[in-house]
C-alpha cells in the first residue's frame, strides 16, 4: 500500500508539473500578453507583475521562480484588478464553488445510482425505458440550456424559486439541479449497465441458491460490485461538475471561483487564468487520487494486488 501511495503521488506530481509548465510557457508565448515585451498595462500592475514573475530575469529563471511560488500556494496578482491577488479571489470564491460542487455531486450520485438500480431491476420494462430516456435526455441537454430553461420555468414563469445568487438554501436548488442533471444521467446509465452485468454473475446465482431474498441479493451482493465502475468515473465526473460551475455560476450570478475564472478569460487576465487553471488542476488531481483510494478500499482484490506488487 505504501509503495503504491508513493508511486501514485509521484505521478500526481508529474502531471501537475506538466500542467504548470504548459500553462507558464503558453501564457508567455502569447503576443501582446503582459509577459512579453510590448506591455500594455498600467504602471501599478506592471510593478506587481515584475515583482511576482521576475520579468527581468531570463525565462528559465522566471519559470523556476514561478514553480517555487506555486509550490507555496502563491498564485500572484491580477492584472485587471490591480488591488487583487489570485489568492484572494480563490479564498473568496472557492468555498462557494466547493459548496455548489459538493451538493451537486451528492445529488447526482444518489439520484443517479437510484435511477440506475431501478432501471436495472425493471430491465426492459416501462420504468427502465422511462429512466433511460430521461437519462439520455439529461446527457443531451447542455447545462447552460438546462439552467436557462429552469430559470425560465421555475423562477420567471411560476415564480416558485429565486432567479439567481447564492444566499439561502432555496437559492441553491436551481443551480444544483441544472448542474446535476448531466452527471446524474451518466451515473444512472453506468449503474444500470454494470448492475445488469453483475446480476448475471455466478455469485449472484449462488446467493439465490442460498434462498436469500431479492432485496438482500441486490443490496448486499450486487450493489457493491455494481458500484465499482461508478466509483472509477467519479474523478472525471468531478471534473465535469467543476467546469460546469463556470457556466452555472455565471448564469446564476453566484460569486464562486468559476465566475472569476470566466471573467478572467473574457478579460484575458492572464495571471488569473494561469493561477486558477493550476489551482483547478490540483483540485482535480487530488480528486482522482481520492477516487483511486476509495476504489482500493471498496474492492478487496485491489488492496492485496498493490501490496503484492510493492
Amino acid at each position: 500500500m505504501l509503495g503504491y501511495l508513493v508511486k501514485r503521488i509521484g505521478s500526481m506530481a508529474v502531471t501537475l508539473l506538466v500542467i504548470i509548465t504548459l500553462t507558464f510557457f503558453l501564457m508567455h508565448s502569447i503576443p501582446g500578453s503582459p509577459f512579453n515585451e510590448e506591455r500594455a498595462t498600467s504602471e501599478a500592475v506592471q510593478k506587481n507583475l515584475e515583482s511576482y514573475y521576475h520579468l527581468d530575469e531570463p525565462l528559465y529563471v522566471q519559470y523556476f521562480l514561478y514553480l517555487k511560488s506555486v509550490a507555496t500556494f502563491d498564485f500572484g496578482p491580477s492584472i485587471k484588478k490591480s488591488s487583487q491577488t489570485v489568492n484572494e479571489m480563490l479564498g473568496r470564491g472557492f468555498p462557494v464553488s466547493f459548496e455548489l460542487g459538493m451538493v451537486t455531486l451528492i445529488v447526482a450520485i444518489f439520484s443517479g445510482i437510484l435511477l440506475g438500480i431501478i432501471a436495472a431491476l425493471r430491465h426492459n420494462g416501462f420504468i427502465d425505458y422511462l429512466a433511460m430516456t430521461v437519462a439520455v435526455l439529461g446527457i443531451s441537454v447542455p447545462n447552460f440550456v438546462m439552467a436557462t430553461l429552469l430559470i425560465q420555468q421555475l423562477a420567471v414563469t411560476w415564480e416558485i424559486l429565486p432567479v439567481a445568487t447564492w444566499t439561502s438554501p432555496k437559492h441553491m436548488i436551481l443551480p444544483t439541479l441544472a448542474l446535476a442533471t448531466g452527471p446524474m444521467a451518466i451515473i444512472a446509465r453506468l449503474t444500470r449497465a454494470s448492475m445488469l452485468e453483475v446480476l448475471t454473475q455466478d455469485y449472484i446465482r449462488t446467493a439465490k441458491a442460498k434462498g436469500l431474498s431479492p432485496v438482500k441479493i441486490v443490496f448486499k451482493h450486487a450493489l457493491k460490485n455494481a458500484l465499482l465502475p461508478v466509483v472509477t468515473i467519479l474523478g472525471s465526473l468531478a471534473a465535469s461538475i467543476l467546469t460546469g460551475t463556470f457556466v452555472i455560476e455565471k448564469i446564476f450570478a453566484i460569486p464562486g471561483m468559476g465566475k472569476y475564472f470566466v471573467e478572467s478569460i473574457n478579460q484575458r487576465d492572464y495571471p488569473v487564468i494561469m493561477g486558477t487553471t493550476i489551482f483547478y488542476s490540483t483540485v482535480l488531481i487530488i480528486m482522482l487520487f481520492l477516487v483511486d483510494l476509495a476504489y482500493g478500499i471498496l474492492d478487496p482484490r485491489i488492496k492485496l494486488h498493490k501490496k503484492e506488487g510493492k
Binding site: 455466478d202 449462488t206 446467493a207 441458491a209 451482493h221 482484490r301
Partner: peptide
C-alpha cells in the same frame, strides 16, 4: 427451500463466490 432443504454447488469456484464479501 433453497439453501436449507435443497442446496447447490456450481461449476466454477472462482466465480461463484462474491469477491467483495
Amino acid at each position: 427451500i433453497r439453501g436449507s432443504d435443497i442446496s447447490m454447488i456450481f461449476q466454477d469456484p472462482m466465480t461463484s463466490l462474491n469477491p467483495t464479501l
